[in-house]
């Protein structure tokens, strides 16, 4: 199975994805219909049944959208997801070189035992979000099997001793992680809001070399739209 995100980033083009939380293939269908390139299922924080996860993964694959997951960063979990058909990973709070190497090795073992699957079909991302991960950044980024580096402002803020994820130190560290990763030839992955006011920031990251962008959670998109007073008063149709 080809990986649409891999094809895009190899061609130097951005891949845009949806962050699915609500456990239903309908969200995958909506993303596919909108022309998005991947859908990330949040197995890490939301209680997906195996059957639902399999249905969403199959739905994405059938629509030519890369099935992506955020899941626990262990070899067993990564293997289980690969067997389901997942082809992109964001592994949160990776804390050591050994942990990153273990999951990269699991991907290699899967490829080696799966006829028809090439290593290039899979994208493995490690998120640097805690203190141990920050301390291990260089070693993790040096692992060849780690394709993508990312970070997350909320866990990063906690790691830096802040509760405000917009604190200048958090922003600076966030930017430094992504820029360092780009400088080391890694792909980077980051989130954007669906509101036009945030698109400029995302476009600036694309200009700096970021190629994998995920649109914020579907529930945030919907809530923000519904809570915008303008949609209830302006003289235009909402959707």
């Amino acid at each position: 199975m080809a990986n649409r995100v891999r094809e895009l980033i190899d061609a130097g083009r951005p891949a845009i994805g949806a962050h699915a939380k609500v456990p239903t293939p309908a969200v995958v269908e909506i993303a596919a219909e909108a022309g998005l390139d991947f859908v990330r299922l949040d197995h890490y924080h939301w209680p997906y049944d195996d059957a639902t996860l399999a249905a969403m993964t199959a739905c994405a694959a059938n629509r030519g959208v890369t099935p992506w997951v955020r899941c626990e960063g262990t070899a067993d979990m990564v293997t289980r997801m690969l067997e389901l058909g997942i082809r992109g990973f964001t592994l949160p709070c990776i804390a050591s070189v050994a942990q990153a190497r273990a999951v990269a090795d699991a991907v290699d073992r899967f490829v080696g035992s799966s006829p028809g699957v090439a290593r290039a079909d899979i994208l493995l991302g490690c998120a640097i979000e805690n203190r141990a991960g920050l301390d291990s950044f260089e070693g993790i980024a040096a692992i060849e099997g780690v394709d993508i580096m990312s970070t997350g402002p909320s866990d990063l803020a906690f790691a830096l001793g802040h509760s405000d994820n917009t604190h200048p130190e958090v922003r600076a560290t966030y930017d430094r992680i992504l820029m360092d990763a780009i400088a080391r030839g890694k792909q980077v992955y980051l989130s954007t809001r669906a509101t036009p006011g945030d698109w400029g920031r995302a476009a600036a990251w694309i200009a700096r070399g970021a190629r994998i962008l995920i649109i914020e959670e579907e529930y945030r998109v919907l809530m923000k739209h519904l809570m915008c007073p303008d949609i209830w008063t302006t003289k235009r149709r909402a959707a």
Binding site: I30, A34, L222
Partner: peptide, 15 residues
């Protein structure tokens, strides 16, 4: 429809 429109508009801009 709301979600699809938001996805499409965001992706169009970024691409």
């Amino acid at each position: 429809a709301i979600l699809g429109t938001a996805y499409r508009d965001t992706a169009d801009y970024l691409r």
